[in-house]
Design a binder for these strands. Structure first.
Lengths: 120, 120
DNA sequence: CAGAATCCTGAAGGATACTG
DNA sequence: CAGTATCCTTCAGGATTCTG
């Protein structure tokens, strides 16, 4: 084994997995990336921007992210209600890591697509 | 909108999503991280290391990663068969991005766990 | 040993309707 | 507008069995 900072012992109930699984869902990563670009967005703005999220899943996703402390939720007590979402400091600290992943995907999507079509 | 290298147009059928979804599954990321640490591993070694993957899912995961060109598969024609898996150059280029995510998760898992217990 | 094939379950996620 | 509440469908993934 090469020297490595990663500990794979108890790899299954790994605490790191509990964190990373949160971004393994369908929408969390996308929401973070978009909030990272637009600073502050309302619920409907987010939904329109993503285009295909159901209201339910956007609500669930935002609630999870808020619970983890990655996204903050600001409610304006008015009628009709206005709620603004943005990244917290914690969310902002994650942002560059995700952007780095996206960048990698962009740089390599052509080769990967070719690989896929080659092997069926 | 801040200046940003990420294009969210057609965010749903986004080609980047087609790539990233590959790592959103349960085992791909873990396999890549482990192969990144151990260079070369046989099927059973990988399975024992992860501990809780079913044979089926490890096989499926490895086949996907091989199809994408992230993992290479070397077969030794002998009985009983011996198959070794390792990262390709492409897989190695992804490795640091994933390790960076793991590092972030490690650094912030305490605070996130606290946030979760606070908000229930 | 390294898998392929089959069956089965739970949970993620969508559609729709309703509400403060 | 910003959700919640239900119902329903799909499919990722586990358990098991079989094979070259």
């Amino acid at each position: 084994m090469k020297e490595n900072q990663i500990n794979f012992s108890e790899v299954d109930n790994c605490p790191v997995r509990n964190i990373l699984d949160r971004f393994g869902d369908k929408w969390s990563t996308l929401v973070i990336l978009i909030l990272g670009s637009y600073d502050t967005l309302r619920f409907n703005e987010l939904q329109k921007m993503i285009g295909t999220v159901s209201q339910k899943m956007l609500a669930v996703t935002l609630k999870k992210l808020e619970t983890d402390g990655l996204v903050s939720r600001k409610v304006y007590p008015q009628v009709p209600p206005k709620v603004e979402y943005s990244l917290t400091a914690l969310g902002l600290s994650l942002l560059p890591k995700l952007e780095s992943l996206v960048q990698w995907a962009n740089e390599n999507r052509t080769i990967i697509t070719e690989n896929r079509s080659l092997k069926g």
